[in-house]
């Protein structure tokens, strides 16, 4: 290719002072795939999306989930999504922004959902993750606890768990911990 390099070098010298175009934002393969995921979303009415940075930043968004059955019916829970440029090779990073009394979500907003970590696969998509999150509210699971206390209560005394959840969602204390209202 060296002859080609030679030709190019000459062209480069000629073009040296010609002004280049405005720097172009590079669209990553992750963005392209996410674009597809998002435009194909098929969400239940109980889930809504927000794009705080506008229509051209899809890599950071929020999803609010309002369960219409189960312990958490009537509450609204906000999740932030951060998507990497090598998505879907890497799972989106998801945090719960609403403080919630839940066996699988800790008080810092970490979420224990298998498809977000150990079981993530590139064939999964944003829709799957949102349904997974929704599922956590309809079927909280004491076998994979992140909030140990909440998990123990759910296991030992589901009635008490239910009233704890109602109290937390209405805005109040469960034990020593205060939960802001989210209904």
């Amino acid at each position: 290719m060296i002859k080609l390099f030679k030709v190019k070098e000459k062209q480069r010298e000629l073009a040296e002072n010609a002004s280049g175009g405005a720097p172009i934002k590079k669209q990553t393969a992750g963005e392209l795939r996410l674009h597809k995921d998002i435009s194909e979303l098929n969400l239940p009415k109980s889930c809504a999306m927000h794009f705080p940075n506008g229509k051209d930043d899809l890599m950071n968004f929020e999803v609010s989930i309002r369960p219409d059955e189960g312990y958490y019916m009537g509450g609204t829970f906000l999740f932030s999504f951060q998507v990497s440029p090598i998505y879907p090779h890497e799972a989106p990073k998801v945090k719960c922004k609403t403080k919630v009394y839940h066996p699988n979500i800790d008080l810092e907003g970490n979420v224990c959902l298998n498809i977000l970590r150990e079981d993530w696969k590139p064939v999964l998509n944003i829709n799957t993750v949102i349904y997974g999150l929704y599922h956590l509210f309809t079927e909280p699971n004491y076998e994979d606890p992140l909030n140990h206390d909440a998990a123990a209560v759910l296991r030992e005394n589901p009635k008490l768990f239910e009233s704890n959840v109602r109290r937390a969602m209405a805005g109040g204390y469960v034990g020593q911990i205060f939960f802001p209202r989210c209904m």
Binding site: I24, K25, K26, Q27, E31, L32, H35, K36, I38, S39, E40, L41, N42, L43, A48, M49, H50, F51, G54, K55, D56, L58
Partner: peptide, 22 residues
């Protein structure tokens, strides 16, 4: 079809918020 050009989303069919914005 949803359409994007150089990182700018020209039109998105869904979700509603983005459809409205574009």
């Amino acid at each position: 079809a949803s359409v994007s050009h150089q990182g700018k989303n020209l039109y998105l069919q869904a979700p509603t918020v983005l459809e409205e914005m574009t």
